[in-house]
Measured scan of single mutants.
Amino acid sequence: MATVKFKYKGEEKEVDISKIKKVWRVGKMISFTWDEGGGKTGRGAVSEKDAPKELLQMLEKQ
């Protein structure tokens, strides 16, 4: 499965696309949330040019 790689608060992170729940556009950035388990929700953002095609497809479906 595809993953999204991004930096959050200076830390490199990687999230499996299948865990992503919500995707939206903020200017030229793609923001998203995912389920971290245990009732926690993670947040992240990646530039439109660095976003994997699967993430962009999720954005178009909404």
Rank of each mutant, 00 (worst) to 15 (best):
M1Y: 04
M1N: 14
M1H: 15
M1C: 14
M1V: 06
A2Y: 04
A2F: 03
A2M: 15
T3M: 09
T3P: 02
V4K: 00
V4S: 00
V4N: 00
V4A: 01
V4E: 00
V4T: 01
V4R: 00
V4D: 00
V4H: 00
K5Q: 08
K5H: 04
K5A: 03
K5V: 06
K5R: 07
F6Y: 13
F6E: 00
F6T: 03
K7S: 08
K7F: 06
K7Q: 14
K7V: 15
K7W: 13
Y8A: 03
Y8D: 13
Y8H: 10
Y8L: 04
K9L: 08
K9W: 07
K9R: 08
K9I: 03
K9S: 10
G10K: 03
G10D: 09
G10C: 07
E11P: 01
E11F: 11
E11V: 14
E11M: 09
E11K: 10
E12Q: 04
E12V: 10
E12D: 10
E12C: 09
E12R: 04
E12F: 08
E12A: 10
K13P: 00
K13L: 12
K13V: 09
K13G: 02
E14P: 00
E14Y: 06
E14V: 12
E14R: 05
E14D: 09
E14W: 03
V15D: 00
D16W: 08
D16S: 09
D16Q: 12
D16P: 12
I17W: 01
I17H: 02
I17V: 14
I17E: 03
S18H: 13
S18T: 05
S18V: 07
S18C: 11
S18A: 13
S18L: 09
K19A: 14
K19R: 03
K19I: 13
K19C: 11
K19Q: 07
I20R: 00
I20N: 00
I20A: 01
I20H: 00
K21W: 13
K21Y: 08
K21Q: 14
K22E: 07
K22Y: 06
K22S: 12
K22I: 06
K22F: 07
K22H: 14
K22A: 13
K22V: 13
V23I: 04
V23H: 01
W24K: 05
W24C: 15
W24Q: 12
W24H: 08
W24V: 10
R25A: 15
R25C: 13
R25I: 14
R25E: 06
V26D: 09
V26S: 13
V26Q: 12
V26L: 04
V26W: 04
G27V: 03
G27N: 06
G27I: 02
G27E: 14
G27M: 03
K28P: 13
K28C: 15
K28R: 05
M29A: 14
M29C: 14
M29L: 11
M29F: 10
M29N: 14
M29Q: 13
I30D: 00
I30N: 00
I30W: 02
I30H: 01
I30F: 04
I30A: 02
I30E: 00
S31G: 06
S31P: 03
S31H: 09
S31W: 07
S31E: 11
F32Q: 00
F32G: 02
F32M: 11
F32P: 00
F32T: 01
F32A: 13
F32W: 02
F32V: 12
F32N: 00
F32L: 07
T33P: 00
T33I: 15
T33M: 10
W34T: 01
W34R: 00
W34G: 00
W34F: 04
D35G: 07
D35K: 03
D35M: 11
D35A: 13
D35L: 14
D35E: 15
D35Q: 04
D35S: 11
D35W: 07
E36C: 10
E36H: 05
E36S: 05
E36D: 13
E36P: 13
G37P: 11
G37Y: 08
G37T: 14
G37W: 09
G37C: 15
G37A: 13
G37K: 14
G37E: 12
G38V: 10
G38M: 07
G38Q: 09
G38K: 08
G38P: 06
G38E: 14
G38L: 09
G38T: 11
G38C: 15
G39N: 08
G39M: 11
G39H: 07
G39A: 04
K40T: 10
K40Q: 15
K40Y: 15
T41P: 07
T41E: 13
T41K: 11
T41V: 11
G42M: 07
G42Y: 12
G42T: 12
G42K: 07
G42V: 11
G42L: 09
R43S: 10
R43K: 10
R43F: 05
R43E: 15
R43D: 15
R43H: 08
G44H: 10
G44L: 07
G44E: 04
G44C: 13
G44I: 13
A45S: 14
A45T: 15
A45R: 10
A45M: 07
V46E: 01
V46D: 00
V46M: 12
V46C: 05
S47I: 12
S47Y: 08
S47R: 05
S47K: 13
S47V: 07
S47A: 15
E48I: 04
E48W: 03
E48Q: 05
E48F: 04
E48K: 10
K49A: 06
K49Y: 13
D50Y: 07
D50F: 04
D50V: 06
D50L: 08
A51L: 03
A51Y: 01
A51E: 02
A51D: 02
A51N: 03
P52G: 10
K53E: 11
K53Q: 10
K53C: 14
E54V: 13
E54C: 12
E54T: 11
E54P: 13
E54W: 13
L55Q: 01
L56C: 07
L56E: 14
L56A: 05
L56W: 04
L56V: 12
L56Y: 06
Q57G: 06
Q57N: 11
Q57C: 13
M58N: 03
M58G: 02
M58S: 03
M58T: 06
M58R: 03
M58V: 05
M58I: 07
M58H: 04
M58D: 03
L59E: 07
L59P: 01
L59S: 05
L59T: 02
L59K: 01
L59Q: 01
E60M: 04
E60D: 13
E60R: 02
E60Q: 03
K61N: 14
K61P: 15
K61M: 12
Q62T: 10
Q62A: 04
Q62G: 09
Q62E: 12
Q62Y: 02
